[in-house]
Each structure stands twice: as structure tokens, then as C-alpha cells.
Amino acid sequence: MPEPKTPCSCSSNGNMNRRSFLRTSGVLATGIAALAASLSPLRELTDYTSAEQFMQKHYKELSKDDMEKVLARITREVEKQYQVRPHVRDYKPLDGVEFVYCLNLTRCIGCRKCVHACVAENNQSREPEIQYIRVLKMPHGSLDMEKGDHNYSPEKVPEKGFFYMPVQCQQCRNAPCVKVCPTKATWTEPDGITVIDYDWCIGCRYCEAACPYFARRFNWTKPKIPKDRLNPNMSYLGNRPRKQGVMEKCHFCIQRTRAGRYPACLEVCPAGARKFGNILDPESEVSYIMRNKRVFIQLKEELGTSPRFFYYFDV
């Protein structure tokens, strides 16, 4: 029985028969599904950069009015995300102040309270975990960093035969991280704090590679902070919540120290091993330490980074 001849039975003239229609539509459907699957991460991208933030100038070029707008935007964003109204400020360096940190290795007992007080103060991500301070357990008689262990978890600290050496950003006078930054998103302020503008950081991680102290941390994923543990006292260059893809590090608690207070890690130390102050003031605690104590190193002194973080011993 001959098939009834229809106008579209022949594929050679560009018309479509049933088979080629099914084939084409099958390929098309697969293609669209694949495209949709490949774009699906975009759907999860809820905290995209706002136009306002994208057009924002560099920190040093912001006028007073600009800064007020920026702080208002950050307040709005934080409130939307955490339902906590923050107090965001832009603290400027104080005149005649250069900050120096001194840490007494004789006194440190390795309890790691400083690590967690820092996390609580500076709104670091809890999962994945970001911490600015690493406490190294080192055997007596050596300052070889290779022998340091930061995963120690004995019943009780301090352990016999070891001393403990907390390491954090050393706030170098000759900071390698600042030199390598391609966008000038990190720089050293007049009071000695090396800061990061999280809105200018492009996340290239050159600074992380350049830092000899493992002081810089990268936000690989969106930081997670429980609402009830958010510290609402924030500063632009300091502890305001970071976004995915930017670097962060210790900034001597800029929101506290530029308001005249001691950093959080110092105030929680049960051994009084941490000392902080203005080195330009001859009456300050750090000046006394420099004059009277065995201030033995700047860590990895031979690299010429000239840290503002000093380790010393009693007696």
C-alpha cells in the first residue's frame, strides 16, 4: 500500500518529517537542559555586588559624604542579612600613634583563648573556619618554626618541655603583601596597621602567597556567622562582614584600638602575656618592654619585613 504523499515527507527540500523533528527536538531539549544546568549556580547568587558597590571609589578617594553613603549601604546590607543593626564606622588613625604588639613567650600557656576571642570580635566565618591567630606548640630550646605544631590537643596546657608561640599578622613596616597587591586594596596606615579594603580586593591571593607568616586568610565560600554571635560594633577597614572571594587578616582590632581600647586577644589572655600600645609614647607599656625586657625577635627577622609584632622573655 503506497504511503499517502504529504508535502513535508521529504527532508531534502528543508521540510521536516516525524523522525527528523523528534531528533532535532531531542537534541535541542538536551542542549537547553545542559545550558540551564551550567547556569544554575547563578540562581544561588543572591548577594551579588550592587551597582552602588561596583561604582564605589577606592577608600582613599572617598570624600566624607561618599563614606557616609558607603557606611549606610553596609549597615543596610548587614541588617538585611543578619537582622542585626550594626554600628559601622570608619575609624581614622590617631595622631602621634604607632601601634606595636609585644608577646611574652615566658607567660603564654597555649590555651588558645585569644584565637576564639578574636573570632568573636572580628566576625570571622565559623564554617568554613577562619582564624587570624595560630598558636604553635614549640619544643624548648628551639625557635625552628618547622618544629611547631598547631593541632595540639592535650588534656591540659601548658605541657612540660614546650612553649607556645601565637602567630598572627605582624603588621610589617616593609610589608610584602602590600607590594604584591595589584589593585592597591591593601596598604599600611600611618599608625602601622596594614588594612584591607574588602570592596577593592579582587581575591587574587597574591598577598597570601607573599606573606611569610601565614597571616592572611581567603574566603573560599560565603562566610557563615550565627546571628547571635555577630559583633555589631564594626569598622569599614576592620570587622564588617566579608563576602566570598576576598582576603582578610588581623588588623589589631581597628574598631577597638583606634577608639583607644585594647585588642580583644589581649583582654582575654589569662596569663597577661599580650601587651599592646603606642611605641611613640615613652610612658607606654610597650616602650617599657622595649627598654627593659629581652625582646629577642621579630619573627623571621632575616626576611627584612620588620614587623611591629615583638616576642620577648621575662628575665
Binding site: 583607644g260 581600647r261 589581649l266 583582654e267 589569662p270 597577661g272 599592646f276 607599656e285 618592654i289 627593659n292
Partner: peptide, 29 residues
Amino acid sequence: DWEAGVHGRTSGYWDRALGSYARLSCVSC
């Protein structure tokens, strides 16, 4: 050392012009 603020912990304000500070006594630790 303690009288210079170097032994033991001092909390509060490092800048004495901006606020008060508290020094712990020997027996607090």
C-alpha cells in the same frame, strides 16, 4: 613590672586620655 603595667593583664583603654583602664591584682590570677 606590674607597676609599669607589664606583668599581668591590663584591660580597658590603652589611651588613658580616652577612657579608664583596670589592672588586675596579684591574687586575681
